[in-house]
């Protein structure tokens, strides 16, 4: 491979204009997930983040020293201010979902999200982390270029036509990269552990009472099945980290990943984790295929409504 062709491939991957519909759809799902996270936290906003919460701001500083992007460090530590921050965060997440002042709201959502994480790092799961790192790159993406109030306003003002302008996808690529490295990193860490290689890891996972959600069929717990499940998790995480970049394999791997996460959603109680991760699958779907899927769903809905008439 020549250096020039490598540079061309880099340019094409990060800068060749493409439809902003996938990133816009991701923005909607992302916004909804942030709203859902905040609503699930709602009864405990002050319990976890308040002046008299489980962990004080000073303990947090002592445990996690260094400069941090954290709005809690600059606002007065009173329940009123902390509640106000959360309501502002919630409002901003709703505006991001509908795509109003998209760039500003993606920045505000990231700032608030990283602040609540920095304020209490001891209650987070992987899904929260994924939302945070994806949110960082979403700030730079043309997430309001489609499916947004911003676009409707631009059309109304005559600044845009009916066609959606293709945009440079470099920020979208970084979120895709984050998803892939998340899986590959999880794979690398798992292969360091004997239970994963021996195929007994899932036995432990299924018997952790604190994670149990719905009952698992007994044949799923047979030693042979447990081996298959443990090794399948390794194969899938490797595939979702590396092979997902091969266009011909992408949809097959995404479908398997979808099934994998649905199984986890059924069996494990980690609220929103699977959905946080699955949200970024949208970014791997080609805009034309997305359009075809939307048209098909639209036709299906219309047919359904005609039948009910």
């Amino acid at each position: 491979m020549r250096l020039k062709s490598l540079w061309e491939a880099w340019n094409s991957f990060f800068f060749a204009p493409q439809s902003p519909t996938p990133i816009a759809l991701f923005r909607i799902v992302y916004g909804m997930l942030v709203v859902a996270t905040l609503l699930l936290l709602r009864p405990d906003w002050l319990t976890w983040y308040g002046a008299h919460g489980w962990v004080s701001l000073s303990t947090m500083h002592a445990l996690e020293p260094g400069a941090r992007l954290n709005l809690f460090a600059v606002i007065p530590q009173t329940d009123t201010w902390i509640n106000a921050l959360f309501w502002m965060f919630l409002g901003s997440a709703i505006l991001l979902t509908i795509g109003f002042l998209t760039r500003l709201n993606s920045l505000l959502v990231f700032l608030c999200l990283t602040s609540i994480h920095q304020r209490n790092l001891y209650i987070l799961h992987g899904g929260d982390t994924f939302l945070r790192v994806a949110g960082f790159f979403l700030i730079f993406a043309p997430a309001g270029a489609a499916l947004s109030v911003d676009r409707l306003i631009r059309i109304w003002r005559g600044k845009e036509g009916a066609n959606i302008e293709p945009r440079s996808p470099w920020a979208q690529r970084m979120i895709q990269f984050e998803l892939a490295i998340m899986y590959f990193s999880a794979f690398c860490l798992k292969v360091k552990g004997a239970p994963w290689l021996q195929g007994t890891a899932m036995y432990y996972v299924y018997h952790l009472d604190e994670f149990k959600r719905f009952p698992i069929p007994s044949w799923f717990l047979h030693p042979v099945m447990l081996k298959l499940e443990s090794w399948s998790a390794l194969v899938l995480e490797f595939s979702l980290g590396i092979l997902i970049w091969v266009k011909e394999l992408r949809y097959t791997i995404l479908t398997l990943g979808l099934l994998f996460h649905f199984c986890l959603e059924y069996s494990l109680n980690i609220p929103l984790f699977q959905w946080d991760v699955l949200s970024a699958y949208i970014l791997f779907v080609d805009a034309n295929d997305l359009k075809r899927a939307t048209n098909w769903a639209g036709r299906l809905c219309r047919r359904g409504s005609k039948k009910s008439d």
Binding site: A67, T129, F136, M182, A186, K192, G193, P195, W196
Partner: peptide, 22 residues
């Protein structure tokens, strides 16, 4: 650490928790 880009993906790995606790 400042920007919030720190991340770790070590759920159930390298060794899943082998005890129920509370």
């Amino acid at each position: 650490l400042w920007s919030g880009l720190f991340q770790s993906w070590d759920m159930f790995s390298p060794i899943p928790k082998s005890a129920n606790t509370y």
